[in-house]
Amino acid sequence: MSIDLLTGDRTRADSVVLPVLERPTRTSQDALAEEAGYTHALARGLSNDAVVLQRRAIAVQLRTRTEETAKSAVPDLLNELAEGGLAWRDIARLVGVTVPAVRKWRQGGPSTSEHRKSIAKLLAFIELLRSDHMVMEGASWLEMTLAESSITGLDIYSSGLIESLVLYAASVLSSEELLDEYDPQWRNSIDDRFEIFTAADGHPSIRLRGAELIG
């Protein structure tokens, strides 16, 4: 049946007939897609809540372990960090002091309670990586660069994103997600114009990438 909408007016064309639009029926695949989308959104929300909860749990875990670790003398804490292979320069950086300050502590010089806590926290962090996340060589792990960047776990730790670093060790965060938290612009700082190579004298050198292909 056609519906003539253009009536009651001498200017209307009586021959124009508009099509009939039948109401569409809801197919089973549409319903399935909608249910899948809803379930996915629900799962994503739960996942985000789980990560938030895990961060809180890690913070509590670290605080508890730090308090326990801080019972030891500062020189003993520093020796334990050193036996794990951390550089004194990196220990100083992660604790937030100068290298000479660490040297004084190694020799028995006084430290503040805050510094003692920072040293204990670093050791507790490395112990947590080993006991809960199978990172057996924490110092080596911290020195490795992340993704294609030149940023290391040492940089992340010294920025304060310690819980995020543990989440990365737990494979909850990817290296890219961790770097995004550290510096959303990290990809812009990658300079791949140059490469490192061993020169004829046996020493490392820098050249433009692809230069060895030029005759």
């Binding site: 050193a82 036996e83 292979g85 060589e137 080596s140 020195e143 490795m144 660069t145 290391t152």
Partner: peptide, 15 residues
């Protein structure tokens, strides 16, 4: 020492 992942072991060995 040229490889960052081996440096901590070299330090531990030296100590």
């Amino acid at each position: 020492l040229e490889d960052a992942q081996h440096r901590s072991q070299v330090r531990s060995d030296m100590r």
